[in-house]
Design a protein around this nucleic acid. Sequence first.
DNA 1: CTCATTTGGAAAGACGTTTTTGCACTTCCT
DNA 2: AGGAAGTGCAAAAACGTCTTTCCAAATGAG
Lengths: 339, 339
Amino acid sequence: MGTNRTRVGIKEVAAAAGVSVTTVSHALNNKGRLPEATRQRVRAIADQLGYKANATARNLVVGRTGLIGLVVSQHGGPPFAVTDFAYFGQLMLAASTAAIGEGYALVLAPADGALAPQGGIAVDGAIIVDPVRDDPLVGALARAGITVVTTGRMLGDDRSCWVDNDHIAGTRAVLDHLQRSGAERIALMTSPLEISYTFDVERAYREWCARARVEPLVKAPELGLSERAGYAAAGELLSLPEPPDAIFATYDRLAYGTLLAAEARGVRVPEDLLLATTATESQAPEQARPALTTLNLHPAEIGRAAASLLIALLDDEEPARHVVVPHRVVARSSTRRRR
Amino acid sequence: MGTNRTRVGIKEVAAAAGVSVTTVSHALNNKGRLPEATRQRVRAIADQLGYKANATARNLVVGRTGLIGLVVSQHGGPPFAVTDFAYFGQLMLAASTAAIGEGYALVLAPADGALAPQGGIAVDGAIIVDPVRDDPLVGALARAGITVVTTGRMLGDDRSCWVDNDHIAGTRAVLDHLQRSGAERIALMTSPLEISYTFDVERAYREWCARARVEPLVKAPELGLSERAGYAAAGELLSLPEPPDAIFATYDRLAYGTLLAAEARGVRVPEDLLLATTATESQAPEQARPALTTLNLHPAEIGRAAASLLIALLDDEEPARHVVVPHRVVARSSTRRRR
DNA sequence: CTCATTTGGAAAGACGTTTTTGCACTTCCT
DNA sequence: AGGAAGTGCAAAAACGTCTTTCCAAATGAG
C-alpha cells in the first residue's frame, strides 16, 4: 500500500509517462498543442498515480492567492447577531464547498477589515453578505482592487455584482397565497434593517396592499429577531382592536415565536390566524405545530451561486453580473384554506 | 498617494535598505546572524514601505499550505443542524480571526471529506468541533498525516489534542447556585447527543444528585433543540405530578422555549421556577424577561484557543495538548433567591 | 605578526508549478 | 525539389520567498 511520505509531483508523472513536465502540465490544463492521445495517456497516468497539483505552487506562478473572503456586514452590531441565523451558516457552508470545488479556499472574515492590504489577509476576491446601505466595506475592497460579489444588493449603489432572490415576486406570491387562503387583513412582521431584503419585501407588501386597497400593517419587533421578539410582537398584533387574520414574518424565528404566542393565548392557527414565513434548508417548518407555510429562499443556493459568480469573475470568464436564485412557496398547515 | 499596482516585494525592501534579500529575510524572521542594529533598520524600512511577505511564496518554500480546516461533526444529521446554533458561528469566527492573525487561513469544510488527499482541499491541520463518539473523521485525518485538534473531547479515544470547558465543574457550579437560590428539585433538560459536552453535564448532574440525595430528573426534548422543543419539554416537566422547581437547560434555545412555556401557563420565573442555561456571547440572556442566569461557555475563546493550539502544533512548538477554557456563572433574575 | 576564529552579509539554489520560447521533424504547396 | 507552414514536445525562465552555503572582513590568541 505504501502511502509515500511525500506527495507525487508533476515530475514523477512526467517520468512515468515518459514525457516532460511541460507536456504533463499542458495535458492536464488543456493548454499547448498536444495530440489527444498524449493528453489521455498522461491524464490516465496522473490519476493512476494520484497526482494532485500543488495548489500553492500553482497560485504562486499564476499570481493569485487562491483565497476568497466571506464577510458578513456588521449591520450596526449587537441587536442583530449574524451568528444567530441558520441562514448565514447555510450560505457560508455552501459557498465554502463550492469554492473548494473550484480550487479556491473560502475564509470567513470579521467585518472590521481582516481583509484588505494593511494588516489582514490577502484575498483574490470577497463575498459580502447582506451589505447595509452604502456599506463602506464594499467601496474599500473595490478600491483595493479586490473583486466583490454581494448577496443581496447594496442599496444606494447598484453597480456591483450580486446574487439575490427576487424578493418582490416572492413577497407577492406569499401575499397572494394568503389571500387565496382567505386572509383579509395581512400584517407584515419585519425588521427595520437597511438591507435590500427588508427593503424589497416592505416595498412589495405596501404596493400589494395599495393594489388590493387594504391598509398596510407593518410591525417591527423590538428586541431583535428572536423567537421572544416574535412572541412579543405577535402578542401586540393580536391585541389590536382590529387584529390581523394573517401574518407574514420575514424571519423564521419571528414566526416560531408568533406560533407560541398564538398558542399561549388560544388563537388557533390556521383557523383564526394564517401564518407564513421564510425558510432555509431546515426541517423546522414541517416539524412545527402546525407545520409552517414558508417562502423558501435557498440560502445554500445563494452561497453556491455567489462563490461561483465570484470565481468566474476572477477567472476572467465574463459571467452575467447578477444571479437571481428562485424561491418557492411551500404551503403547509399554517395557511390551510378557510371554509 | 499612488498605491502601486504591484505589491512591494522583498527585493524592493532590500534595495531601499541597501542590503541583500537574504538579510531582509533574516531580519524579518529572526533568523541568521545579524547585529540588532541592522535588524531594526531593515524592519523599519520594511513597514515604512508597507511590505507584507507574499504568503503563497512563503508557503511554497516552507512546504505547507497555510490552510487549516474547520469541520463540524455531522452528529447523525438533520434533527441537529449545526447552523442553528450561535455557538458554532461564534466559535468559527473567532477561530478564523485567530488563524488569520497567525498567518493561516481557516476554511470551513463540510463533514463529508472535502478535506483529506483524495478529491478535497489540502490543509495543514484541522479543527473538529464536537466530535461524536469515535468520530471516523478524526481517525481518517490523523491517518492522512493531518494534525487534528478537537473542541470538546472525543469520547472513546482521548489521545487527541483538545480544548474544552470544564463542564463537570461548570455544571456543579450551576447546580450549587440553583440550590443556594432555594431550589429543591432541579431538572436537567439536555440532549441525548453522544458528545463529550452532554456526556459530562449529565454525569456531573447525576453525581451531584447522588451526593445531595435527590432523585435526578432528566428530560431530553424530542424535536431537536429549538425553542419549540424546549417549550414542549418544559410543558411536560411542569405537568408532572411533582414538577421541578428549577431547570438547567444545556442549550440556550431550550431555555428560551421554557421561558415562553412558563409564561404561557402562568408559572412565574423565578418565583415558581428557577431557570438557568448556558450562553454564548449573545446579549439575549439579559434581554429575556426575566433576564436569564447563564453558564457562559465562551465559544469565541474556545475557537481562538483551538486555532492557536493547532497552529502551535503545526509550528512545532510543543504546547500543552489540552486547553481548558474557563466558564463563568452569571446570576440574573431568573434565579433570584427565594425568601 | 601570523594564524585561527568569529562575525556580517551576499550569492545561489530550492520549493512545484505554469508559461514562453524554440527546436526538430512532418506535411503541404508550388 | 525546395521552401513554408504546421505539429509535437522539451528546455528554461519565471513566480517570491526561505535557507544553505560560503566568502570576506574583523577580531582574537599565541
